[in-house]
């Protein structure tokens, strides 16, 4: 597998660390149930999956990657900070 880092270009999978499914992060005060769902439960699709990879041996950026879990085909990469997964300081959830 190769991942096209938006900052560095296409690089080998060895440079990246898997950080799991890319899920919207609940608000800090969303409660234990919402956080348990977020931390533990997974759709676990056989097909396109949105997930986080970190370009650990490159620029260090966190990426949101869309990848097919059946074929390992890369379907799209954006910087995670642009993906609207987490609320930023002073904003509500995206």
């Amino acid at each position: 597998m190769r991942i096209a880092c938006p900052l560095c270009g296409a690089r080998d999978r060895r440079e990246f660390t898997y950080r799991g499914a890319a899920l919207p992060v609940p608000a800090l005060d969303a409660g234990a149930e919402a956080w348990s769902v977020h931390v533990h439960l997974r759709e676990n699709p056989a097909g396109p999956l949105e997930e986080l990879w970190q370009h650990e041996l490159g620029c260090g950026a966190w990426l949101k990657v869309r990848r097919d879990t059946v074929t390992h085909a890369m379907l799209g990469v954006v910087l995670a900070e642009d993906a609207g997964l987490a609320a930023r300081d002073g904003e509500g959830p995206a």
Binding site: T69, V70, T71
Partner: peptide, 11 residues
Amino acid sequence: YSSYAARGNLA
């Protein structure tokens, strides 16, 4: 990494 491919990668 999540996968349903019954094969892995070189790394």
